[in-house]
Design a protein around this nucleic acid. Sequence first.
DNA 1: TTTTCTGCAAACGGTTTGCATCGCT
DNA 2: AGCGATGCAAACCGTTTGCAGAAAA
Lengths: 149, 149
Amino acid sequence: MIAQTIYTAFDRAGQRITRPRRLIADRLAELAASGADFSLDDLWHDLREQDPHFGRATLYRSIEVLVNQGLLDRITYADGSHRYHVCHDNTHYHLTCVQCRRFVEVDLDVSVEQFASVCHQTNFSLEGLTLTLFGRCARCRNEQGDAPR
Amino acid sequence: MIAQTIYTAFDRAGQRITRPRRLIADRLAELAASGADFSLDDLWHDLREQDPHFGRATLYRSIEVLVNQGLLDRITYADGSHRYHVCHDNTHYHLTCVQCRRFVEVDLDVSVEQFASVCHQTNFSLEGLTLTLFGRCARCRNEQGDAPR
DNA sequence: TTTTCTGCAAACGGTTTGCATCGCT
DNA sequence: AGCGATGCAAACCGTTTGCAGAAAA
């Protein structure tokens, strides 16, 4: 159960299991099941349906923890906006549509060893990497020339 | 001369060559020569020294054009902040330090054809990609355990 | 009972916009 | 002369913070 994993992540970060965090975990579990990606605002509105007084700040504070714990993936778009999704594994690559923002995770045969070796030569320790392909999906290309984005 | 290239880019975008844009081009030429990366705020302060009334909005409007023209590269950090640098060529990869933010361009043998083929399978048109390696540089690792970032 | 967490509201910081004026062409 | 570009100030929007009260441990 994903909700359990999330409780554990909070615990690992030394955070109490509270009602708001339970609501977050439950909703994230649903989102993980559907594979959907979401903005914090989306998520906040969902949570407000469970509890009309759910605070925005609470959400931001909790999400930060989950991102740091590697449970949530924060995707940054070319315009600087963010969307999130629950991670399946810890290395993955994205292909995202610059117009409608739908994205898929893709399987790339990327040589992480090569990156490690480049880092080593440059005397960096490698702590992470992001690889995002930006493109336009078929649906958006077929729409009658709407202004991009 | 890089400043010339920038004039051309403005022209290609159908924008007049004005005094503020000349100042921007000149300053970017200097920055390109030194290889430095910069924030818009850095750049704005530089420009204010040339002209104390230089408007922020003007800078944002012009930079947007240059980014779209592929002359400037906008780097998005893990925390969502941005820095820029003048591009040397149109495909490059970054290795950036999560602590001090210095970065180097690295030469990676990345198979762009592979990406193109993945996009094709997924029925996306490939319009760009970002690949950034995050790590910690030697200097930051050697400092006495300062709090990261 | 102690400590952490919460919701609220206000602050923040980077970016964008409306508008009257200025200045390229 | 005409239209685009500018500078300014205000608006915006996602995010963070300060705080007093509420809820876990």
